[in-house]
Amino acid sequence: MGPMRVLIALLCCLCSSGLMAQEVALFGREGKAVAYIAADVDRTIYLWGGEPVAYLAASAGDFEIRGFNGQHLGWLVNGTVYDGNGEAVGVTKRAATFFTEWEPYKPFKKAKPLKGLLRYQLYKPYWRTSWSDTPLDELLRRGISD
């Protein structure tokens, strides 16, 4: 096998394993990049400064957003981040229906804390079209506070 074929085979393996997947930015209601979902196995959510605050867990076709302290923070459904009341607190660029700012430079990621014992949300609310009064970064910071 020639060197070019080896390189192509390696790139195919990396792409199919998800190692080259892109990080996904999360924007607040003002269109500013607040956090991003890393392309790692845990689907870690980092604040833009590199602080790990939460992670995604698959849940009946959607994703639950769980804090490292075990707290249920909300859901990611079709590119929209919802809080416990079913109100939007953030969106991905694809789901945004408004102008989003350029994504600034990302500093190095800080080390992830250990995951705490899971605390469950009692129910899954109806998704609303209204925006929550809670900013996205405040909701995500609840994942590292007690």
Rank of each mutant, 00 (worst) to 15 (best):
L7Q: 12
I8E: 14
A9H: 10
L11N: 09
C12F: 14
C12K: 07
C12R: 11
C13M: 13
C13E: 07
L14Q: 10
C15N: 09
S17E: 07
S17A: 13
G18S: 00
G18F: 00
L19Q: 13
L19A: 12
A21W: 14
A21R: 10
A21M: 09
E23H: 13
V24E: 15
V24W: 05
F27G: 03
G28T: 02
E30R: 15
G31P: 08
G31E: 13
G31C: 07
G31L: 12
G31D: 12
K32R: 15
K32G: 10
A35S: 15
Y36A: 05
I37F: 04
I37L: 06
I37E: 07
A38R: 03
A38I: 02
D40A: 01
D42K: 10
R43M: 04
Y46K: 00
Y46E: 02
G49Y: 04
G49R: 15
G49H: 15
G50D: 00
E51C: 01
E51P: 00
P52F: 06
P52C: 06
Y55F: 15
L56C: 04
L56E: 02
A57D: 07
A58D: 09
S59I: 00
A60K: 14
A60L: 12
A60I: 09
I65S: 09
R66I: 06
R66K: 07
G67Y: 06
G67L: 08
F68P: 02
F68W: 14
F68A: 05
F68T: 07
N69T: 11
H72V: 01
L73T: 08
G74Q: 01
W75H: 01
W75N: 04
W75T: 01
L76P: 08
V77Q: 03
N78Q: 15
T80L: 15
V81Y: 00
Y82W: 12
Y82D: 08
G84E: 10
G84S: 11
N85S: 14
A88Y: 04
V89S: 07
G90W: 10
T92S: 01
K93F: 05
R94S: 13
R94Y: 14
R94N: 07
A95C: 11
T97P: 00
T97A: 12
F98A: 04
E101M: 06
E101A: 13
W102M: 12
E103L: 13
P104L: 03
P104Y: 02
Y105R: 11
Y105I: 07
K106C: 03
K106W: 02
P107Y: 01
F108A: 11
K109T: 04
K109F: 05
K110C: 00
K110F: 03
K110L: 11
A111K: 15
P113W: 09
P113K: 12
L114C: 03
L114P: 01
G116Y: 14
L122H: 04
Y123P: 02
Y123L: 05
Y123E: 06
Y126A: 10
W127V: 06
R128G: 06
T129G: 12
W131P: 06
W131R: 14
S132D: 01
S132L: 03
T134D: 07
P135Y: 09
P135C: 09
P135K: 06
L136K: 04
L136P: 03
L136Q: 08
D137M: 02
D137P: 05
E138P: 01
L140M: 03
